[in-house]
């Protein structure tokens, strides 16, 4: 698990502990993420998947440990990191249109007192096109379906033109077409050398989509290439004795090439 010699790893976490109301949610997480991979975070409910992402983004106080992004603190390289929060985390009744939301992805590069320029608008339009939402650019965001909302968030993240992306359940509650479109975009980004860290909740597709998996349950159960980590033994360690999950896992492992739809 080594980065290239002269470049710091996109993400390095050491001894990270996060607690809510004095109850630890993450405990002593150590992690070094290699560049240019599409990485899935999986684990049971309450395992701290979203918490890990939020802590990395500096959105939650840490009880201990540190997070480095490309060898620096996030504050020093904010424009290199993109973020897709959970869809429900914002008010979709907010009085903005799709273009406004995507342009927000450019704000980090603009600095104080500067309005988005024509260049920024062109970038935003291009990003909308990549998620096939360009025809909706002037649409009020409250008139979007769940899948469309998720694509708008993805377009906003693309507009950030970051090198490392954190995405919190981008596939939650979206239609099959959107899921396919998102996967395509994520793979394109990966092929451009970007690093993507994606919280995911569906085991069968996790095996299909991701180069590496982080199995998480309060701490790192396993991290490595999907083929090595996605085993019955590791999943059992992650999910504990939950029979439904285990039978699901068994069927996935038995089905070989994935493709199981639940």
């Amino acid at each position: 698990m080594s980065g290239t010699e002269n470049q710091a790893a996109p993400l390095e976490i050491h001894d990270l502990t996060v607690a809510y109301h004095k109850k630890p949610v993450l405990w002593g997480v150590d992690l070094e993420v290699p560049a240019g991979q599409l990485i899935g975070i999986i684990g049971p409910n309450g395992a701290g998947k979203s918490t890990l992402i939020k802590a990395c983004m500096g959105l939650l106080p840490m009880q201990s440990g540190w997070v480095k992004v490309f060898g620096q603190s996030l504050k020093e390289v904010p424009t290199r990191v993109g973020y897709v929060p959970q869809r429900e985390s914002v008010d979709w009744d907010f009085p903005v249109n799709v273009m406004d939301v995507v342009l927000m992805g450019r704000y980090g590069r603009l600095g104080l007192f500067r309005r988005p320029s024509k260049v920024d608008r062109n970038v935003a339009r291009d990003c909308l096109d990549r998620v096939k939402m360009l025809p909706y650019a002037n649409r009020q965001i409250s008139n979007l379906s769940g899948g469309q909302q998720q694509r708008v968030f993805l377009a906003r993240a693309l507009a950030q033109q970051a090198d490392l992306y954190f995405m919190d359940e981008p596939f939650a509650g979206v239609d099959a077409a959107t899921e396919a479109a998102i996967v395509t975009v994520l793979r394109e980004l990966r092929n451009q050398g970007k690093t993507l860290i994606v919280v995911h909740h569906d085991l069968p597709t996790a095996k299909q989509y991701f180069d590496s998996l982080l199995l998480l349950n309060m701490n790192v159960v396993a991290f490595g290439p999907t083929a090595e980590v996605f085993t019955a033994e590791q999943l059992q360690r992650t999910y504990g004795g939950r029979l439904t999950i285990l039978s699901e896992v068994a069927s996935v492992l038995g089905a070989g090439n994935g493709g199981v739809n639940l």
């Binding site: 983004m57 959105l59 990191v81 973020y83 907010f94 939301v101 704000y107 309005r115 988005p116």
Partner: peptide, 16 residues
Amino acid sequence: KELLVASFDDGLARAM
């Protein structure tokens, strides 16, 4: 833009 992004999505605002 600061008012807009902080009102719409404070997570993104903070990350920026």
